[in-house]
Design a protein around this nucleic acid. Structure first.
Length: 486
RNA sequence: GCGGAGUUAGUCCAGCCCGGCAGGACGUCAGCUUCCCAAGCUGAAGGUCGCGGGUUCAAAUCCCGCACUCCGCACCA
């Protein structure tokens, strides 16, 4: 299984495909989900809700994608989510100004310096294009946020570059009205937008993408007061801290050895692994990688990336950032809103631990880890968990004639509103089974002549290709059990 | 954004060098056959040849520009 095979499957079977593909001016970095992809994505999101939002009694919100300029003044994205770049006048190569200056002159001009400072150093030290020795244009800021104009006056606003800003700005109202107590998770699924310089590899680096984010608001003085920790203390996670070796340890061990800073962080990392195990991703190929200071986002004080090994390398699926009080403090300052809350009669400004999940990348990884070439039977099988499969069950007539089709239609109409069922009468039965295998349908029910005599059907299992005969009246309970979320 | 390679049916690809009717395989659809794993037979649908311009009697083919995809570099708060 490799990237090419997955994308071919995605294109052929309606998982995902390029946006606006019939037009030649379609910009890069935008992809759409087809019917199979949407069905998989919806089920993935349901599983996320069950395993994280409900399990931990979080609050889920759904915020606007366009947010006011002040939000990003406060969040730091207007100043920090931009790179100083310089363009060579001759060969048009683009460089990060701070990085090129450091490389050539060993001078450190901070990324956040005024643009004039970069220009000054460049002219004083006579910095030339390393490729063609050409001169540079003046330094510019390239901000990765999409700016939009609101109303007839085109007032500045931005498409959110991360969904979590909605959670931060909504926090005061939520905490007042929803009767919470710390620590409390606030969750959101939605789209984010980043003007990436070079989007690549379909779902893996998009300009418009889905995030499932969780912000856990906590009392920084009580990070080790976490009763729920006992639920996960024996959950094994794979950690890469300080060096390049991955150590598989229980959360309890990770905490005791100091690999993880506190119970709260350990608890949520464990929930994440338990969630991903249920998606069918091989968590034996996963790791939490602790980020060094240079790699961390500007708001993070401690950060772990949850990464999974795929055929195109380690893929970051979730960024786990301890954002401290960075966000609430700055939103408080800019908006004058009060973000302090009472925690057992003591007023605290909550800190935030964040689990920022990339949905699109997760779906790609699920597809890749589920993809199987069964050479013996000359078929491709997507061994998705039954509860994630785009189609739960194929409903097939062995042949169209002798009333088999009518009987099949009857069964289909009983199931179609409760399950993702696919009705198919035409073509060779083996071909129909194989098509279902390719979209990961775990079951196929086939109506044959015996059905007309004794009201039984065969049910075929995708992975083993074995069949058993069950009563029509038992189909529903059978499917209910077999496709239930774990 | 730079360098390289590409872009032709749903998918994979041939045709391009050397300009002259738009092709193949698989897939899809319909019919026949067949009571269980991509069989067979018959037929059909499906194309702005990435987009725009130029050269030419004639462009998928030659030239120029652009977009997109992939690989490498850079970027990835």
């Amino acid at each position: 299984m490799n990237y090419e095979q997955i994308i071919q499957l995605a294109l052929e079977r309606g998982f995902y495909f390029p946006s606006c593909e019939i037009y030649s001016d379609a910009p890069a970095g935008f992809w759409e989900y087809g019917p199979s992809g949407v069905s998989l994505k919806n089920k993935f999101m349901d599983l996320w809700r069950r395993e994280l939002v409900r399990r931990d009694r979080m609050w889920e919100i759904d915020g606007s994608q366009i947010m006011s300029q002040s939000v990003f003044v406060a969040s730091g994205h207007l100043s920090s989510f931009a790179d100083p770049v310089i363009t060579c006048q001759k060969c048009k190569s683009i460089f990060r100004a701070d990085k090129l200056i450091a490389e050539i002159t060993s001078l450190v001009v901070p990324e956040s310096a005024d643009l004039e400072q970069f220009d000054k150093v460049i002219s004083e030290k006579d910095v030339k294009c390393p490729k063609c020795k050409g001169n540079f244009d003046n330094t510019k800021k390239f901000n990765m946020m999409f700016k939009v104009g609101i109303g007839p006056q085109s007032e500045a606003a931005y498409l959110r570059p991360e969904t979590c800003q909605s959670i931060f700005v909504d926090f005061p109202r939520l905490y007042k009205t929803m009767r919470g107590r710390l620590p409390i998770g606030v969750a959101q699924i939605g789209k984010s937008f980043r003007n990436e310089i070079s989007p690549r590899q379909s779902l893996l680096r998009l300009r418009e993408f889905y995030q499932a984010e969780i912000e856990v608001f906590c009392n920084p003085n009580k990070l080790n007061e976490m009763d729920r920790f006992s639920e996960i203390e024996n959950t094994e996670i794979r950690l890469m801290v300080d060096d390049d070796t991955i150590k598989q340890v229980t959360c309890k061990e990770a905490l005791e050895s100091g690999m993880l800073p506190n119970k709260l962080v350990a608890y949520y990392l464990a929930l994440l692994v338990e969630f991903y195990r249920k998606t069918g991703i091989d968590v034996g190929k996963s790791r939490f990688r602790k980020l060094g200071d240079k790699e961390k986002a500007f708001y993070a004080s401690v950060a772990f990336d949850f990464e999974v090994e795929t055929t195109i390398g380690w893929l970051e699926l979730v960024a786990c950032n301890y954002r401290s009080d960075y966000d609430l403090k700055s939103h408080g300052t800019v908006s004058k809103e009060k973000f302090e809350v009472l925690d057992n009669d003591v007023k605290v400004l909550p800190h935030v631990f964040e689990l920022s999940m990339g949905i699109d990348r997760s779906l790609y990884t699920i597809l890749e880890h589920s993809f199987r070439e069964d050479k013996e039977n000359d078929r491709v099988v997507l061994s998705l968990k039954p509860y994630l499969a785009p189609i739960h069950v194929g409903i097939l007539s062995l042949m169209k004639k002798d009333g088999l089709a009518e009987k099949t239609d009857e069964i289909f109409s009983k199931l179609k509103t409760r399950y993702d069922a696919f009705l198919d009468h035409s073509g060779a039965i083996g071909r129909r089974y194989r098509r279902l295998d390719e979209v990961g349908a775990p079951f196929a029910i086939t109506v044959d002549h015996q059905t007309l005599q004794d009201d039984t059907v065969t049910i075929r299992m995708r992975d083993s290709m074995s069949q058993e005969r069950i009563k029509i009246s038992d189909i529903e309970s059978h499917l209910a059990d077999a496709t239930a979320y774990p």
